[in-house]
Design a protein around this nucleic acid. Structure first.
Lengths: 148, 148
DNA sequence: CCATATTGCGCAAGAATCTTGCGTAACATC
DNA sequence: GATGTTACGCAAGATTCTTGCGCAATATGG
């Protein structure tokens, strides 16, 4: 993990489908060593995979909400985590220290669809004591590019 | 945008660097039409780009925090948004309806590094009235894969 | 200080993949 | 039932990937 490796990761964060040839030029190497470094980063688990940035609005997911969840007790924690993992509309979930216990990010088509999701799914999650739901007005930043 | 297009997006969410040939097999097309659909999805802005999933811990960013920000007044809104956009350690930022005004996600090496970032950068952002900072204990889900 | 090991680079060539022009079939429109 | 539209599959030239090999630079040990 030196500066060239970080440069490779930076370039790939900008364009994950960039050809190894273009990548090599961008980081000042020839194709072969650049290619080997890339494989190494993949094998070491530095690169966990590749993704695509899909515009949510273009696939009928124009509505986004943040939900703060507090659980009644620790005993439902496992069940809660398992169910959250299985629900595709929850695209992001963290367990936090302190209050609230969890932070969820949910995608839906629109407000009515979200309301149904809230009533039918969220309130039924195991051990939920309190749900606070906040609508996202604007996404300033997303995609999770790391500062390298 | 039909079922095949959604299948293409699903496959690419699993592996954004998948070859068009493998993609074609996966969605039940031959190479050529699959390739053209992919280009079309890119040109229509359905696909905004491609990314790489880097393990934060492997690049010395093993610490993650969520920050709730409330601003003193609307007048600093623009300045606040601009500065947030320029800070690389803030990897995610949303403006919300109601309280709090903003939700930020911050990456750092460790707790001491985060404390310095908090004191030197976060408290100095324009118009900040209240900052509530919560440490992420566990990432249940991330990467932002959409349900397609 | 020199011999040897290790690491990482560049070159090159065969394999795989991409890209695109073209012809054809399926479906809709009138 | 004629015509237009859309999307498919085939095929071939261009590009890109993948890997074996040799060489140079920096460490390691006598």
């Amino acid at each position: 993990m030196d500066g060239i490796d970080r440069a490779i990761l930076r370039k790939l964060q900008e364009n994950g489908r960039m050809t190894a040839t273009a990548l090599a030029v961008g980081v000042g190497l020839t194709l072969a060593p650049c290619h080997r470094r890339l494989r190494e980063l993949e094998n070491n688990g530095v690169i966990r995979g590749y993704g695509v940035d899909v515009d949510p609005a273009k696939v009928d997911l124009g509505f986004e909400a943040i939900i703060f969840v507090t659980l009644r007790d620790r005993s439902s924690m496992k069940d809660f985590e398992r169910e959250v993992g299985e629900i595709g509309q929850i695209i992001d979930a963290q367990r936090l220290f302190g209050e609230p216990d969890f932070l969820l990010r949910v995608m839906a088509s629109d407000l009515p669809a979200y309301q149904r999701f809230y009533d039918d799914v969220l309130v039924g999650l195991p051990g939920v004591e309190k749900l606070t739901s906040t609508i996202v007005m604007k996404n300033l930043k997303s995609g999770g590019r790391l500062p390298l």
